[in-house]
Design a protein around this nucleic acid. Structure first.
Length: 801
RNA sequence: GCCGCUAUGGUGGAAUUGGCAGACACAAGGGACUUAAAAUCCCUCGGAAGAAAUUCCGUACCGGUUCGACCCCGGUUAGCGGCACCA
C-alpha cells in the first residue's frame, strides 16, 4: 500500500479539530505542564520555515508530556498590533482590522497543516478589545503605582517609520525594523519605570532555568555596576557630582569632563570666557544622529571651560573642566572625573589635549597606555591609600568619602526607562485624558476597553503626531476628575505591550472579570518551558518579566517570575548558508514543503536538521532522507507478525531506544532521538518482520515527531483508541545493557585489539582476557607492564615500558 | 574594543562529558532489477601506503597535563551573535 500522506494528514487534522483532542483539561487536580512558544506576528508573508522549528520542538515535548499523564497547556495566539499591518493598510486602503483578520486566517491554516497540537480553544489576539482591555488595565495599575509617567525627553525618532523607538529597538543608530537613520527629538512621552526593577530583573535570574546566553545577555543589557558618587567642589561654589566605579583612583584625577548637554554650561555662561565656542560644540553634538556619533567615535574631541575650575575633594587641587561628547548626559550624572592613568578613554583624551597623567596604581606602563587591571595593581601616589590593593582602596576611600560627606556608595545601570508611546493608529489606545485643570487623569476602569475609533486615514501628521489626533470627536472628552472638557491621549502603546502578559491570558482566556482567575493562574503558572528567539532576549523577554514582577507585587499573579525555563532555537538559513530573505532569493515556503513531502516529513526534517540551538542551512536533498524513513515506517504495516513482546535479539535495542528518545526529547536533542529511531528501524528490518508489541512501542515513540502517520498506522493495526490517548512506553534500566560487550585493548593508550566479554566481567578477568588477545602477547613480550587500567564496559589499557 | 558562543569527512551532524573519532542521514561512485528512466534493494565511501592482513596520519593552528585529549589548561587564528565612549 502506498503512503498517501495528503489523505492521512487531512484526516487526522480534521479529527483533532472535531474532537478537541489537545485542549487542556479544566481539572486542576491533575499534574500540569505549561509549554509555550512565542506567538507570531501575523505578517502578510505568511509562515516562515523558522516558525515550525520552535513550534514543532515544543509540540514534541507537549505530546510526550500528555502521554506521560500531564494536563498540558500548549496554546497559540496572535501578536497582531504593529506597523507592518498599518503600512499595508495605508498602501492598499484596507482597514488594519481586515488585514489582520486575513493574515491570521492564513497563519492559522498553515499551523494546522503542520499538525501542531495547539489548544485552539484558547486562541487569543492582542487586537481583540476583550484582550486589550486588560493590557490597558495593567497600564492603569502601573500608572497608579507611579510606574507610568509622562516626560519631556530626548527620544529616538525613526525617520522612516515616523515613530518613537525604545532604546531596545535601535540597532547601530538605525531602526531595527526599517533601518532608517534614528535621530534625537524632544517629545512628551509615556514612560514605564522598568529601572525600578533593574536589581530584581538581574537577581531573580538565579531562581529560573534560562540557557546561559540568555542570562548573560540580560545581565549585560541591564548593565549593573557598583561604585560611588563623589562630590567635587568648583570655583563657582556649585557642587559637581560624578559617578565612578573606580573611587580608588581619586588621587589620579587630573581633569573633569561634563556632557555637552550638562546644565552647568548654561548656568556658568557668564563665567565661561569661551562660551561661544562651548555652545558651538554642544550644538554640533546635538545635530549628530546616533549613527554618526558611533561612526565617528574614535578620535576624542572637546572644549575646555575657560574661567572655571573643579576642586578634588581628596587633596583640594584645582583641575580644569571640559565638555566632550564621549560623556553621555543620560548615564550616571552626566559628568565624570577623568583618570587618564587608569582609563583608556581618559588617556586618549588627555593625549589629545596634553593633560597630565598620574600613576596611582602600580603595575602597568602608563607611558604607553592606561593601566586598567584591578586585580593585581597596588596603590601609589595616593595619600592614605598608598600600599593598598585596589579592592581594599575602594572600600577605604568610599568609607572616607561617606564620613567626610563628600560621596556615597552607588549602583548604576545601563538600562533606561521604557519609552511607551507610539505615534500610530494600530496599537492599544493609552487610557489617559488630559484636563487643563486636573492634568493627566486615568480613565475609570469601568470604561475599559477604550476602543480604537474607526478611521480611514492612518498617515502620521507632519510633526509625527498620531493619526488619532485628527479625530477630534474621539479626542474630545470630559475629565473623569472634574467633569470639564478634556482631551484623550492620542499616542498608542508599542507592539511589546500586548505580548508582555499574553501567557497569563492563556490560563483563562475568556474571563471578563479579570485578566485571568486567581485559581487558573495558581494552577498553570509559571510557564514550565518557554522557547523563543534570541532576538527577543532584551525586548519581549525583559519587558514581560518586568510586567510580571509588577503584577506579582500588586497581588495579581502568584509567582515572581513568569517562566521557569527558557530555551532558544537557532535560525534556519537558506540553502546557501545565508539568512533567508526575499532579496537573496533563498526563501523556502513551508506550504510548498508540506504539499510536496507532507507535514510529518517537514516536522521530522526540521528536527533532524541539526543541533536545535544552532543555526542550520536548509537542504532540499536531506529532507528526502526523512521522507524515505517514513515510507519505510509505513511499509512496516505489511510486515506484522504475531507476538506481544520484544523478540530477544531486539529487546535491548527497544529498551535503549525508549530511554534515549525519552531523555533526548527533554533536552531538545531531537536530531539524535530521530537517529535512534532510524537505527531501530534498521535493526527491525534486519530481523525480518515486526511483532505487534514491537510495532506498538515503535509507533508511540515516533508519534510526537510524526503524529499523523503513526496514528494512521495505529488505527490500521487495530490497536485500541488513538496514540494520543495511550501512554508513553516504559523501559527497564537493567535491560538497557547488552549481555555481551566488545572491549578495547590498548597498549600505552594506543588501540591494539579487541575482545568480546560478559558485560559484568571484573577487572582481573578483563585484564587476563586482554593479555590473551591474539597479537597482544607478542607486543608486551619482553616489556614491563607498569600500569594496568580497566574502564568497566569500555577498555583495558596496558602501560608498558 | 568588551562579553558570549563556535570550529569534527565532499555536506548536515554524532561521540554516554577524559576512554574504539565520524553514529544517523545527505551527496557521490559501483552493482542488481528494468527495453529505458524514476523508485527500490545491495556494496564502497576521512587521508596515505599495501594484493591483503595491517600500519601510519587525522577533530582550525602551536604548546602543555595525562596511561589515554574532539573533550581539560596556556597561547594563536578564523567565523557567528550581543554590547559598544555606560566612567
Amino acid at each position: 500500500m502506498k503512503y498517501d500522506f495528503k489523505a492521512i494528514e487531512k484526516k487526522w487534522q480534521q479529527k483533532w479539530e472535531d474532537e478537541h483532542t489537545f485542549s487542556a483539561k479544566q481539572d486542576f487536580s491533575l499534574p500540569k505542564f505549561y509549554a509555550l512558544v512565542e506567538f507570531p506576528y501575523p505578517s502578510g508573508q505568511g509562515l516562515h520555515v523558522g516558525h515550525p522549528r520552535s513550534y514543532t520542538a515544543l509540540d514534541i515535548v507537549a505530546r510526550k508530556k500528555r502521554l506521560d499523564g500531564y494536563n498540558v497547556l500548549y496554546p497559540m495566539g496572535w501578536d497582531a498590533f504593529g506597523l507592518p499591518t498599518e503600512n499595508f493598510a495605508m498602501k492598499n486602503h484596507i482597514h488594519p482590522e481586515i488585514v489582520t483578520k486575513n493574515n491570521v486566517a492564513r497563519f492559522k491554516s498553515q499551523l494546522k497543516s503542520l499538525g501542531l497540537s495547539f489548544d485552539w480553544d484558547r486562541e487569543i489576539n492582542t487586537t481583540d478589545p476583550s484582550y486589550y482591555k486588560w493590557t490597558q488595565w495593567i497600564f492603569l495599575q502601573l500608572y497608579k503605582k507611579g510606574l507610568a509617567y509622562k516626560k519631556e525627553m530626548n527620544v529616538n525618532w525613526c525617520t522612516g517609520c515616523k515613530v518613537v523607538l525604545a532604546n531596545e529597538e535601535v540597532v547601530n543608530g538605525t531602526c531595527e525594523r526599517c533601518h532608517s537613520p534614528v535621530v534625537h527629538k524632544v517629545k512628551s512621552q509615556w514612560m514605564l519605570r522598568i529601572t525600578a526593577y533593574a536589581d530584581r530583573l538581574i537577581d531573580d535570574l538565579d531562581t529560573v532555568n534560562f540557557i546561559d546566553r540568555v542570562t548573560t545577555q540580560q545581565k549585560n543589557w541591564i548593565g549593573r555596576s557598583h561604585g560611588a558618587e563623589v562630590t567635587f567642589g568648583t570655583t563657582e561654589g556649585d557642587e559637581m557630582i560624578v559617578y565612578t566605579t573606580r573611587p580608588d583612583t581619586l588621587f589620579g584625577v587630573t581633569y573633569m569632563v561634563i556632557a555637552p548637554e550638562h546644565k552647568f554650561v548654561d548656568k556658568w555662561a557668564d563665567k565661561i570666557s569661551n562660551i561661544d565656542e562651548v555652545r558651538a560644540y554642544r550644538d554640533a553634538a546635538a545635530h549628530k544622529s546616533d549613527f554618526e556619533r558611533t561612526e565617528l567615535a574614535k578620535e576624542k574631541t572637546g572644549v575646555r571651560l575657560d574661567g572655571v575650575m573643579a576642586i578634588n575633594p581628596v587633596n583640594g587641587k584645582q583641575i580644569p573642566i571640559f565638555v566632550s561628547d564621549y560623556v553621555l548626559a543620560s548615564y550616571g550624572t552626566g559628568a565624570i572625573m577623568a583618570v587618564p592613568g587608569h582609563d583608556q578613554r581618559d588617556y586618549d583624551f588627555a593625549k589629545v589635549f596634553g593633560l597630565p597623567i598620574i600613576e596611582v596604581v602600580a603595575g602597568g606602563d602608563i607611558t604607553k597606555e592606561a593601566f586598567t587591571d584591578c586585580a593585581t595593581g597596588v596603590m601609589v601616589n595616593s595619600g592614605f591609600l598608598t600600599g593598598m590593593s585596589v579592592d581594599d582602596a575602594k572600600v577605604a576611600i568610599t568609607e572616607w568619602l561617606e564620613k567626610e560627606g563628600k560621596g556615597v556608595k552607588k549602583t548604576n545601570f545601563k538600562l533606561r526607562d521604557w519609552v511607551f508611546s507610539r505615534q500610530r493608529y494600530w496599537g492599544e489606545p493609552i487610557p489617559m485624558v488630559y484636563c487643563e485643570k486636573c492634568g493627566w487623569q486615568p480613565i475609570p476602569e469601568s470604561e475599559l476597553p477604550l476602543k480604537l475609533p474607526e478611521i480611514s486615514d492612518y498617515e502620521p501628521g507632519p510633526e509625527g503626531e498620531s493619526p488619532l489626533a485628527r479625530h477630534t470627536d474621539w479626542v474630545n472628552t470630559t475629565c473623569p476628575c472634574c467633569g470639564g472638557p478634556a482631551k484623550r491621549e492620542t499616542d498608542t502603546m508599542p507592539q511589546w505591550a500586548g505580548s508582555s502578559w499574553y501567557f497569563l491570558r492563556y490560563c483563562d482566556p475568556h474571563n471578563d472579570e479579570a485578566l485571568a482567575s486567581p485559581e487558573a493562574l495558581k494552577y498553570w503558572m509559571p510557564v514550565d518551558w518557554y522557547n523563543g528567539g534570541m532576538e527577543h532576549t532584551t525586548l519581549h523577554l525583559l519587558y514581560s518579566r518586568f510586567w510580571h514582577k509588577f503584577l506579582y507585587d500588586i497581588g495579581v499573579v502568584p509567582t515572581a517570575e513568569p517562566y521557569a525555563k527558557r530555551t532558544s532555537h537557532g535560525m534556519i538559513l537558506g540553502e546557501n548558508g545565508e539568512k533567508m530573505s526575499k532579496s537573496r532569493g533563498n526563501v523556502v515556503n513551508p506550504d510548498d514543503i508540506v504539499d510536496q513531502y507532507g507535514a510529518d516529513t517537514m516536522r521530522l526534517y526540521e528536527m533532524f536538521i541539526g543541533d536545535f540551538e544552532k543555526a542550520a542551512p536548509w537542504s532540499s536533498s536531506s529532507i528526502k532522507g526523512c521522507k524515505r524513513f517514513l515510507e519505510r515506517v509505513f511499509d512496516l504495516s505489511e510486515k506484522l507478525i504475531d507476538g506481544d513482546g520484544y523478540r530477544p535479539q531486539l529487546e535491548t535495542s527497544f529498551h535503549k531506544a525508549i530511554k534515549k528518545v525519552s531523555e533526548d526529547i527533554l533536552q531538545l536533542k531531537m536530531n539524535t532521538a530521530i537517529a535512534t529511531l532510524m537505527s531501530l528501524l534498521n535493526e527491525i528490518d534486519d530481523a525480518k518482520g515486526i511483532t505487534r508489541g514491537e510495532y506498538r512501542t515503535f509507533l508511540v515513540l515516533l508519534n510526537p515527531f510524526a503524529p499523523h502517520i503513526t496514528e494512521e498506522l495505529w488505527e490500521m493495526a487495530g490497536f485500541e483508541g488513538q496514540i494520543a490517548q495511550t501512554s508513553w512506553p516504559t523501559y527497564d534500566e537493567s535491560k538497557c545493557k547488552d549481555a555481551q560487550i566488545e572491549m578495547v585493548v590498548q597498549i600505552s593508550g594506543k588501540l591494539r585489539g579487541r575482545f568480546v566479554a560478559d558485560a559484568n566481567i571484573d577487572k582481573e578477568a578483563a585484564i587476563a582476557a586482554a593479555k590473551a588477545v591474539e597479537g597482544i602477547a607478542a607486543q608486551i613480550e619482553g616489556k614491563t607492564i607498569v600500569k594496568e587500567i580497566y574502564v568497566p564496559g569500555k577498555l583495558v589499557n596496558l602501560v608498558v615500558r
